[in-house]
Every structure is written in C-alpha cells, then in structure tokens.
Amino acid sequence: MTKRDAIALRAEDNVATALRDFAAGEVATVGVDQSTVAVTLAEAIAFGHKFALRDIARGDDVLKYGEVIGRATADIAKGSHAHVQNIESLRGRGDLVRPA
C-alpha cells in the first residue's frame, strides 16, 4: 500500500481528511479501505481539514464515516476544501424553527 497522507473512512464517503498540511496543486494520496486514490488539491488544505473526493453538488449530502455529516450549500469541486463555507449542519438548527 502506498503511504497515505489523507484518509476516507468508507468507500461511499465523498470527503477525505488531510493528514498533513497541503499546498494548492499538491496531490493527496487518500487511503480508502486497503487501496489509495490520488486527488489533486484545488487549494491549500490544513492538517485535519477535509476536501471533496469527487464533485459534490449544492444540496447533496456530505458523507464521512459512511454517514451524513451535513449538506452542501454550494457546489464543491473535487479537490476543494469542504468545510463550514460550503457545508451546513442539519441538526440543532434553532434558526430554522418557525415561530408557532
């Protein structure tokens, strides 16, 4: 197995976690199960932050651990930073509660 510097927990995940700091244009070797895939990063990704493993459309579920961690609020191109600027939580959203 090629040495990984990013990881996706499940094959169905559409985001991966960076295991080192990356500069824009670098290629991340993403460990998924026993194999690896190479993803060219569109922008700098800090250690511990996530990037899209494939193109994610606005409104799509964002998957990590094979589970839904939120919804894309904008299109997230493969290799782009996936974080609070383009993912919203679906839970604890008192701002979405309509007054009775």
Partner: peptide, 9 residues
C-alpha cells in the same frame, strides 16, 4: 478551526 464542520461530524 481543527477541521470539524458540523455537530453530526
């Protein structure tokens, strides 16, 4: 800042 995006994550 540590990379966690949502409460679900």
């Amino acid at each position: 800042k540590g990379g966690l995006t949502t409460i679900e994550e």
